[in-house]
Design a protein around this nucleic acid. Structure first.
Lengths: 220, 220
DNA sequence: ACTTAATAACTGACTGGGCGGTTATTAAAT
DNA sequence: ATTTAATAACCGCCCAGTCAGTTATTAAGT
């Protein structure tokens, strides 16, 4: 705790090191973990600094305020994920059901099982205190994400693969268990570890597609 | 703001009134609203007091601490709901599907559309800061609730009404959209008012039961 | 190579305000 | 007159944000 800032496997020959490039990411990672665990208000910057292996003053060399760190956490971590998802949809060849399954399970693998899974809880928790951030999140994340799902669902309906339905609502239903699982993982999971999530998601997908498929093929 | 504490429709003839009986509930209601909106840490007791129409000192005549108020909010508001639900299940006559539909829609009417709908968000947000409370909630609310759903689902499977499946997991899936809708309502809804919830829930129920029904009867 | 000067990353003690909690006092109720 | 609900001024801790000083690093000079 006293000696720090050494690249792994290096002996502590000095009190600290200059690592201008690495700081921001380390700060954001530390802040994400603490914000998710404790919430924004209850997180002390001293703790963020300690976790990032620096002093509190250093935080202010890279960010203007606690709130700026919060915004950076949210805004920098989600862009890449969305791009990857949109790419997957664009390149995919196969049935729409298979694509949606892959989207759901892929999201869980890339987001749900990583530190990113804490972001939904964080956003939900702080929505009342950061309305502008919530607006940003809805506009640039939720709606963009939903657009992908709605597109695939509508394509599936047009192709006769799914029953006709309100794709907006169906998209929300399809995605809800993902969000639910992610939030759960960071809140009540420790006291109710009900099996692993992929099992949960697979049953969801089976029921959902069995329920929405246009009757033609039934997967047992 | 200055004059207060009058039963509705009473003229402010004095600075305040003694209303020992009514205080606790009013405090709890005020605290619920603010905790849900801002989270526990970010809520100031001065604001709770103001909203309850009293001064901060008065809070301490009825509760030992801020945390005690928090616990009271959670513990006093959910018991009655659970009892009502268990009674409904006990008395119900009809198909298990119909019962589950009624449970879901009834929950939304009695909880989702009232101030109680904020509790899930509150629990999730503060789970990191109040582990004991989370444990209590899981033990006495989540599991008790799930037990009801699991019971009905298993009965349905045994009766040949539903396909065989893991009732524990299915119960979580069935309930997830409710929690999702409630949390959504208190966080991102203002920036994405996607239709009303009953429509969402009805589609959920249609897809779910169509997906899980044992093929015999199809309701279209 | 070795020393020294200049720069910039980093530190940690400090502060000012805000908020949880207390208490001396006031006023309603009986 | 006595009791007690309620107040509002008050206290002290905590923590976001600051800044004067320290140390690693780099560059220039010899």
């Amino acid at each position: 705790m006293i000696f720090c800032n050494h690249t792994p496997g290096e002996k502590p020959s000095c009190r600290w090191r200059r690592r201008k490039e690495a700081r921001p990411e380390e700060i954001i990672d530390a802040a994400l973990a603490l914000f998710v665990e404790k919430g924004f208000s209850a997180t002390r910057l001293d703790d963020v600094a300690k976790r990032a292996g620096i002093s509190k003053g250093t935080l202010y060399l890279y960010f203007d305020s606690k709130e700026a760190i919060f915004r950076a956490v949210v805004e920098t971590l989600i862009g890449p994920q969305l791009q990857q998802i949109e790419k997957l949809v664009h390149d995919f060849e196969g049935s729409n059901q298979a694509l949606l399954r892959q989207l759901i399970l892929g999201w869980w693998r890339n987001v749900g099982e990583t530190g990113l899974s804490g972001i939904p809880k964080l956003i939900v928790s702080e929505s009342g205190n950061f309305p502008e951030l919530s607006e940003y999140f809805v506009k640039h994340v939720v709606k963009r994400m939903r657009k992908v799902f709605v597109g695939v669902l509508e394509r599936g309906v047009a192709a006769g693969e799914f029953k006709p339905c309100d794709a907006q609502v169906a998209a929300r239903l399809l995605f809800a268990p993902l969000v639910h699982a992610a939030i759960w993982k960071h809140s009540l999971q420790p006291w109710d570890d009900t099996g692993d999530v992929p099992v949960y998601l697979n049953l969801h997908l089976d029921i959902f597609f069995n329920g929405i498929s246009s009757g033609a093929a039934k997967n047992e």
